[in-house]
């Protein structure tokens, strides 16, 4: 290889390595009492194949190298199934991808050199712990209020002892796909948790195992939702648009039907679903 072409190769390698550059505005807040503010950072040498969280890791390492304090954000599995990560990126929960969590969002979706604003989920029920981390334990308390089934402990049941049609199983699975990340709350203009509650109520409500508590489930989970300070649903369907699991607002219609059925049913003993 001639000296000239060697130099050319070195330049193009350097260009590849130099990667993308972004101006990030990140929400910094020391604790729940701190009013917080947006702080601008430059992220350089970002590979287009990095996930959004990897890009944030890179920026944090850079901050640490400079002796500055890194910013806090949540993540766990980083493969889109745990529901731990969640950032509002340029005003959209989980950013510009469809049906993806923040960890599955790749930097190639962003325009090189653009400005990216990163904020935590905003809701009274999700107080900011620090920087981009919010406390989502309100969701746990909603689950405790009714998102469970009573089962007899002991040996495992026989595989086919409870018959469930394929269609019914699929329907339940569509709702069970909810990972409880809270994007529905973050995107709702009313910070309502209705899609989350509805997914849980439908997931359990369409299966035979969920029948014993079915009558109370919607009511108790909704009461807890209100007590935790979430808002009311006004049917604007922002939640389903950002949901990484693409949970449909038809779940909310199901929850509404459950509520109406509860109101109009005369006998509290009448089963709501007969066996298949």
């Amino acid at each position: 290889m001639s000296a000239g072409s060697q130099a050319e190769a070195a330049v193009s390698t350097e260009r590849r390595a130099s990667g993308m550059t972004f101006t990030l505005e990140i929400w910094r807040q020391r604790n729940a009492d701190d009013p917080g503010r947006m702080v601008a950072y430059e992220a350089t040498r970002v590979s287009p194949d990095m996930s959004f969280l990897e890009m944030l890791d890179l920026l944090n390492e850079e901050l640490m190298r400079k002796g500055e304090e890194p910013f806090a954000f949540d993540s766990d599995c980083r493969e889109g199934i745990c529901g731990m990560c969640g950032l509002v990126i340029n005003g959209v929960a989980h950013g510009p991808g469809t049906g993806t969590t923040t960890c599955q969002l790749y930097m190639r979706l962003f325009k090189n050199g653009s400005r990216i604003r990163v904020e935590p989920w905003r809701a009274r029920a999700f107080p900011v712990v620090r920087d981009l981390v919010v406390d989502r334990s309100a969701f746990d308390r909603i689950i405790q209020a009714g998102g469970y089934t009573s089962v007899n402990t002991g040996s495992a049941p026989d595989a086919n002892a409870t018959l469930i049609s394929q269609a019914r199983a699929e329907e339940a699975m569509d709702s069970a796909a909810c990972i409880g990340c809270g994007a529905c709350v973050a995107s709702c203009k009313n910070a309502s948790a209705m899609l989350f509650v509805a997914a849980k109520v439908k997931h359990l409500g369409v299966l035979p195992q969920g029948q014993p508590e079915r009558r109370q489930r919607g009511v108790t989970m909704l009461e807890t939702m209100q007590e935790e300070g979430f808002g009311n649903c006004t049917n604007e369907y922002e939640c389903e648009a950002v949901c990484p699991k693409e949970i449909s607002t038809s779940n909310i219609a199901f929850l509404n039907r459950e509520y109406i059925r509860n109101l109009v049913s005369l006998s509290s003993l009448r089963p709501l679903v007969t066996s298949e």
């Binding site: 505005e25 929400w27 947006m38 509002v88 340029n90 005003g91 959209v92 604003r117 904020e119 905003r122 809701a123 009274r124 029920a125 995107s187 203009k189 009313n190 910070a191 309502s192 300070g229 979430f230 808002g231 604007e236 369907y237 922002e238 939640c239 389903e240 648009a241 950002v242």
Partner: peptide, 13 residues
């Protein structure tokens, strides 16, 4: 339900 709003908000739904 949302005492502190977003600096940037966008509608995708």
């Amino acid at each position: 339900a949302r005492p502190v709003g977003y600096r940037v908000s966008a509608s995708v739904g």
